[in-house]
Design a protein around this nucleic acid. Structure first.
Lengths: 239, 239
DNA sequence: GATGAAAACATGTATATACATTATAGCCAT
DNA sequence: ATGGCTATAATGTATATACATGTTTTCATC
């Protein structure tokens, strides 16, 4: 498991400090040596010590305060990194042929629910798409998407019958923030029918809200059959 | 949404390059200026340009190759950061009193299933705990945990009747890697009874495997009522 | 022309240095 | 005491420099 070679100076120091923190030798709240002292202890320059401490801080293992020093952070949360892939990629990595079917695509004024889902304030026009992603001819997941036409007016002219809106949006619309929400739900009769699974089967639901510089871009809800899909995340302190 | 002040030199440059990449002005595969050229364009030193490019590379937005230069990466995946909190913290942040009940705690030789769950190779002794976390007196989530006694021998003497094994492990055992697996499942009759939910209700299952320097440390499966719990992850390119 | 050595090149890492920023401690006058 | 000033200490950022590392290109030799 531990395949790091720690070949560079600062990665050796980083590993050493990480070990001290993670082993509890330096408990939460402990003040670690100042940059100059670390530099002296390891026989390196302050810049190198700074780089190490900066990375530890970015990784959330320590907290830095001017004048006071650097402290081991209280372990409030494990932050795991979740790679959320494009669905076509996901399907193809299972060695299954990918397919896509657009069920509906309508333009309308944003309802109150639309506004809530996209965290829209002003209202305006939205595009709503319902689609099914297929793997090996069978339903793989459902997509329910709202696109804010105020920030993505060019989406109105697009034909989403062949290419999923996700691919279009990823390649054409700049965005700078996203939020994911992962839940388990019981399949409604409609969802069960579309996914060709048993009624009341468990489904994994991933909702994503995306923002660009000009406000909300899109909201999308993916619904996967629960017994056929899992999200995997990994965590390595300090990366 | 965009609350960044970009006050330092390299964060301004970083923001500028990010904008160019995310807006599509520099498409995937595009070779960005060399460090020396960037330094010249922005009137800064090569070290500053290097820092910016290094951060972009860490964030996965670009890929760097010696001699060849730095290239905008193909957007293979959105990497979202998921903060997985301690359950007691999670419950208290809902303003509910936290409770905990240990249902079973047995020591045994690792079965084949135990080995598979923990990715153990050699076998050996394990500790298995079944517990319920309560919020406001009602079941909040189930915990099913295996502890590898080969790497955590001191767990055998612990009394997990009061404090959950997770708290003990987090505070006492060093670990350096973890993997999370998130799924939706249909509640079995036993699970439904323990969580006091309807039979066949959807549940969110989070499994975590943890490794230390000496091999697997623990495996834990948390089962939440699907309609009462969600995981939230956020993503900001470049952080 | 093929092969391999050498030069050129871009990034990777580390150092010494400088100055900016900011929180703390101590001091001084009221 | 107390309010506010200043000195100080630690981190934050940036620069110039140096050498290491790994690729690609060039070029001399066989």
């Amino acid at each position: 498991m531990n395949m790091e070679k720690e070949k560079t100076l600062h990665s050796r120091i980083l590993g050493d400090l990480e070990r001290r923190i993670l082993s509890g030798e330096w408990p939460p709240g402990y003040r670690l040596p100042f940059e100059v002292d670390l530099a002296a202890q390891y026989g390196c320059s302050r810049m190198t010590a700074n780089k190490v401490l900066t990375q530890l801080a970015r990784g959330g293992l320590i907290e830095r305060r001017k004048k006071s020093g650097s402290f081991v952070a209280q372990p409030v949360a494990q932050s795991a990194v979740l790679d959320i892939h494009d669905i076509e990629t996901e399907v193809r990595s299972l060695n299954l042929p990918y397919g896509y079917r657009l069920d509906a695509c309508t333009r309308r004024s944003a309802t109150r629910q639309d506004c809530a889902l996209m965290e829209l304030t002003g209202g305006g026009a939205v595009l709503e798409c319902l689609a099914v992603h297929l793997a090996g001819g069978r339903p793989f997941c459902l997509e329910h998407r709202l696109i804010n036409l105020a920030t993505v007016p060019e989406a109105e002219g697009e034909d989403f019958g062949r290419t999923p809106p996700g691919a279009f949006l990823i390649s054409r619309v700049p965005w700078n923030a996203a939020e994911h929400r992962i839940q388990a739900v019981t399949a409604s009769p409609e969802v069960a029918a579309k996914l060709e699974i048993a009624r009341n089967a468990a489904c994994l639901v991933i909702e994503r809200r995306t923002w660009g510089a000009d406000g909300p871009v899109t909201f999308v809800r993916f619904t996967y059959p629960g017994d056929r899909h899992a999200l995997v995340a990994r965590f390595q302190p300090g990366g």
